[in-house]
């Protein structure tokens, strides 16, 4: 590990930047009102079906960390990103930023936090306004958050950020369609960096890009972390990127947290059977390896399975797993896992 990331480690023991506490998020499934009504115990009751996107997740992102959240599609990783950014509000639980609760703030109260927390989205084709030039897009957040500065100062800020992500400031007059996917993602990163944030949430920022471009964008994000002292919440499904980029990893399955640990520790010794399967599924460059076979399909988050949410696909599940929800246990210093098998020592 490089010197810089070691310094981060020491720092990370001190400052908690973002804390997610007992987070639940449920989305109602919209149906017509008549089909929601039912007759129960002599009364007419209205029952709404819900998608249980996140079920009690607690996570801490320390200052200087790059916390990666991994999992398959539908496990709630993007919902976490959006809830942390307060783009959607949690059903239960709290989110704090630098010790202050932010999930219950009004949009106006949130403004100072918006400057400190920025987001990079997955699809650089959809996240840039096609009718605004790059300069307009990038100048907008600067004008909003630094309204006390005059236009010249704002412009020099803009040029500085464009330079720092490798976009020529003279391209400012161009529209997003004139750029390639990798360049657009650089512009998205520039937009996030332009207000000099402390914390960046990146939701699959490289999954829409080609391999050689992925490397460019990842390098850019790593450089920005070093230069600007950034903290990342990085959402991805690609474990090889996690190993490279993350300081910590949280593995999610069906809206719950399976395992949380420092990156190297997780890859050296994955404890949860789901993490093991996920790591074994990474295609190997050096020829065929055995993949751990999981049984069954991912259940829907509408009717959550009882007990451990993973029991239907777990090769080691027993009766206890089917009935009792496993608790998050600290098996080693800062290595948490929620699994009965690991707790009982049979795995």
């Amino acid at each position: 590990m490089s010197q810089v990331s070691r310094e981060y480690k020491v720092m990370s023991d001190k400052i908690k930047l973002v804390e997610i506490n007992g987070l639940h998020k449920r989305f109602p499934i919209k149906k017509d009102i008549l089909s929601e009504l039912s007759f129960k115990g002599g009364k007419i009751t209205r029952e709404q079906e819900q998608v249980h996107a996140i079920n009690g997740v607690s996570l801490t992102v320390n200052k200087g960390d790059a916390l990666c959240v991994v999992g398959e599609s539908g496990c709630g990783k993007s919902t976490i990103a959006r809830t942390v950014m307060n783009l959607i509000s949690p059903s239960e639980g709290t989110i704090t930023f630098a010790g202050k609760r932010i999930d219950n703030l009004t949009p106006k109260q949130l403004v100072p936090y918006r400057k400190k927390m920025q987001m990079i989205f997955q699809n650089p084709y959809a996240s840039l306004n096609p009718r605004m030039t790059i300069e307009e897009t990038l100048l907008e957040p600067i004008k909003f958050h630094f309204s006390e500065k005059n236009l010249d100062e704002q412009r020099s800020m803009l040029e500085h950020t464009m330079d720092s992500v490798g976009i020529d400031p003279s391209w400012g007059e161009r529209y997003p369609h004139e750029f390639s996917g990798g360049q657009r993602q650089r512009i998205s990163i520039a937009r996030a960096l332009s207000v000099d944030p402390e914390f960046i949430v990146a939701d699959e920022p490289i999954s829409a890009l080609d391999v050689s471009i992925q490397a460019q964008v990842l390098n850019l994000m790593m450089d920005a972390r070093e230069q600007r002292d950034l903290t990342y919440l990085f959402i991805t499904h690609d474990l090889s990127v996690v190993e490279q980029f993350g300081s910590h990893v949280a593995v999610m399955y069906l809206g719950t947290l399976c395992e949380y640990s420092e990156t190297q520790d997780l890859f050296d010794q994955p404890l949860h059977p789901y993490t093991q399967a996920l790591i074994s599924a990474i295609p190997n460059l050096h020829g065929k390896t055995e993949h751990i076979k999981m049984t069954g399909e991912i259940p829907t988050p509408v009717n959550l399975p009882s007990g451990c949410v993973f029991h239907g696909r777990c090769p080691y599940a027993n009766e206890r797993c089917k009935q009792e929800v496993p608790k998050k246990l600290e098996m080693k210093p800062s290595h948490f896992v929620a699994c009965h098998g690991v707790e009982e020592g049979r795995l």
Binding site: S212, D223, Q244
Partner: peptide, 11 residues
């Protein structure tokens, strides 16, 4: 350019 090929945490 593949993340698997780089040392962790390195460019």
């Amino acid at each position: 350019a593949l993340p698997q090929m780089a040392d962790n945490g390195q460019r």
